[in-house]
Amino acid sequence: MHALLKISRLIDALTERVGKAATWLVLVVTLISAGNAFVRYLFNFSSNGLLEIQWYLFSAIFLLCSGYTLLKNEHVRIDVVAGRFAPRAQAWIDIVGTVFFMAPMAVAVLYLSWPIFVESYRVGEHSSNAGGLLVWPVRALVPAGFALLVLQGISELIKRVAFLQGLIGDPNAKSPAATPESELVRVIEAQRGGPR
């Protein structure tokens, strides 16, 4: 199990790097979007390529950060029910959910999207829009994103099993660090003179 935990830490490190790098794409897509709007209204000029690059970058953010979101334990789940269970029961719910739902779906999408990407690359597929971009780079994001999600799912599975064996702490435990929302609440309460 200790060897598997080392593999888990390597996967987590990869996911962390990809996720943090991909979050910078939010700034890039914002700048492109603002620049595109500025040029369109100021010079009455528009480009399908500029619109498509925004869509491509949004796809990259969404697909490349799915594993990162899983690493940070921020995926949408039914905490109303699962949150009432003990940590060990929650670990079992995560194991069952990963093995029977997340992993099969992610592997199926990875398997089905790979030939589409390969064919798109082989023919040099371009957008059907005038001035559009190559399509194969965005098609490559689908198998890449789901491969990262599968890897992170394996890491999370290893951590849940290690937790059940008593080798590590609860992987579902939230970090004691303040969230931006809780920090904002603290500041507002401090300005009001305390909680009400």
Rank of each mutant, 00 (worst) to 15 (best):
N36Q: 10
F45L: 10
F45C: 00
G49L: 01
G49T: 04
L51W: 12
E52M: 01
W55M: 09
A60G: 06
I61M: 12
G67F: 13
L70N: 10
L70I: 11
L70D: 12
K72W: 13
N73S: 06
E74D: 11
H75F: 14
V76F: 15
V76Q: 13
V76N: 08
R77I: 09
R77C: 03
I78M: 11
I78F: 12
V81C: 02
F85P: 11
P87A: 05
P87D: 04
W92A: 09
I93P: 15
V96D: 14
G97R: 01
V99E: 09
A103R: 15
M105R: 11
V107G: 13
V109K: 08
L110V: 07
L112M: 02
P115D: 00
E125G: 05
H126I: 08
S128P: 07
S128D: 00
A130H: 04
G131F: 15
G132V: 04
L133I: 12
L133S: 09
L134S: 14
L134V: 07
L141C: 02
V142Y: 00
V142R: 01
V142N: 00
A144D: 08
G145M: 02
F146I: 14
L149I: 13
G153Q: 06
I154Y: 00
E156L: 14
R160Q: 14
R160S: 09
V161P: 14
L164M: 04
L164S: 10
L164I: 07
L164T: 08
Q165M: 09
L167R: 05
